[in-house]
């Protein structure tokens, strides 16, 4: 087995046990693992976003190789950028197979300057004096997302759900009782649950009398829903725990030089020594653990 794989296993074990050590209490192993995770994630994502979208889809459209001309002012800017960072701006333009829809003043696909400008505006948030520029980019993103979602939710979550769950009670083929397939009973449960659940969130009238009773039924429906969510959440967390345990067991083998055992023992000794040294300062366990 290569040294890289073995080293990777030791790092994986250290980070996993470092995160788990938080269940005992906050400690430097946990902090190291946490900070590494945040830092590496940010760097990794930035790099991936650049190489999967900005370079091929933005620069590839603004400076396509098919329109390259070393005399053009636009490509002179490109060559200047290439002088500083040639992997992102290779010689002769970016060749990612993009079509040229328009050329205005020597700039191909000129409309792509708008997302380019908005992206730069977002980065300007790093400079306090002109950080307000970032609002333009954020406004565009929020506006676009709101528009897209309004359509998506209306179509699938409102109309689609009503269409899918509405049942004709006069349909002779629809059975009265079935829990696993469409039935009159299921349709009644959905109808009652939806109406009572919605009425629970109706705050324009005090929840007394009939409205109080109906909204109480709504609470029961909500509680059942939250209970199911909690159950699934527990199941998910246990699955992830199983995944980590499987890896820890794998890395405890002799081919990985018993990485799990060594790191576990080292952590227990260090944390135990720390607890012994600071036995007079032991604080009660924080309630937000778990």
């Amino acid at each position: 087995m290569s040294t890289t794989i073995i080293l990777g296993a030791w790092i994986a074990v250290f980070l996993t046990l470092g995160i788990f050590s938080y269940l005992y209490k906050d400690n430097p192993f946990y902090k190291t693992a946490e900070h590494l995770f945040v830092g590496i994630s940010a760097g990794y994502w930035t790099s991936l976003f650049f190489w999967t979208q900005i370079q091929p889809n933005l620069f590839g459209r603004l400076w396509p190789s098919s329109n390259y001309s070393s005399d053009s002012f636009w490509y002179m800017i490109y060559n200047g950028l290439g002088f500083f960072y040639s992997p992102g701006f290779p010689n002769g333009g970016v060749d990612k197979g993009h079509e040229i829809h328009n050329v205005v003043l020597g700039v191909p696909n000129v409309h792509y300057l708008i997302p380019f400008a908005l992206g730069i505006m977002m980065l300007l948030s790093l400079i306090p004096k002109i950080s307000w520029f970032a609002r333009w980019g954020i406004a565009y993103t929020v506006g676009m997302a709101a528009g897209l979602r309004a359509y998506g939710f209306l179509n699938s979550n409102v109309i689609g759900q009503i269409k899918g769950t509405a049942a004709s009670f006069s349909d002779p083929n629809l059975p009265f009782w079935s829990l696993t397939s469409p039935s009159i009973f299921n349709s009644i449960v959905i109808l009652v649950g939806t109406i009572t659940g919605l009425l629970y969130f109706y705050f324009s009238k005090e929840h007394k009398g009939v409205l109080g009773k109906i909204s109480k039924v709504g609470i029961y429906f909500l509680m059942i829903s939250f209970g199911a969510s909690f159950g699934f959440a527990v199941m998910g967390r246990i699955s992830l725990l199983i995944g980590r345990f499987v890896d820890l067991i794998k890395y405890s083998g002799s081919e990985y030089f018993n990485a799990t055992l060594w790191i576990l023992v080292a952590m227990i000794i260090i944390l135990g020594y720390d607890a012994f040294k600071n036995r007079d300062k032991i604080l009660p366990v924080s309630k937000d653990v778990a």
């Binding site: 829903s225 199911a228 969510s229 699934f232 959440a233 199941m235 998910g236 699955s239």
Partner: peptide
């Protein structure tokens, strides 16, 4: 689709 448990609901 195949989803994580937490998404099932």
């Amino acid at each position: 689709s195949g989803v994580t448990s937490i998404q099932v609901n």
